[in-house]
Amino acid sequence: MGAEGIDPDEVRHVARLARLELSGEEVERMAGELAGVLRHIATIDELDLDGVEPTSHVVSVENALRPDVPRPCLPRERALESAPEVADDGFAVPSPQA
């Protein structure tokens, strides 16, 4: 895996996936910093992990379920109180179609 690091094109692609604007200078810097961390991460390549189960949770809980019973909702004013832009009782955003 990526001991070779990550090139600026990959940085731009990942930034796009993560919805992060990065200037040209930031892309270069990020590529260098990530490469350093990825080199350290690559040390796990030396481990033999065949047949090892992945761990997603360290808790052994199952079926943490909730009864299907309604509880009070937030009043609309509270739901909207922190919104950067409000229109028609909703959260306004630049239209995705635009």
Partner: peptide, 21 residues
Amino acid sequence: KLIHLGSSGRIHGSQTSVVDF
């Protein structure tokens, strides 16, 4: 639900949509 408002929105005259959760 995403409702398209058109350019009547308040965001700098551009196209606006509104989210209803």
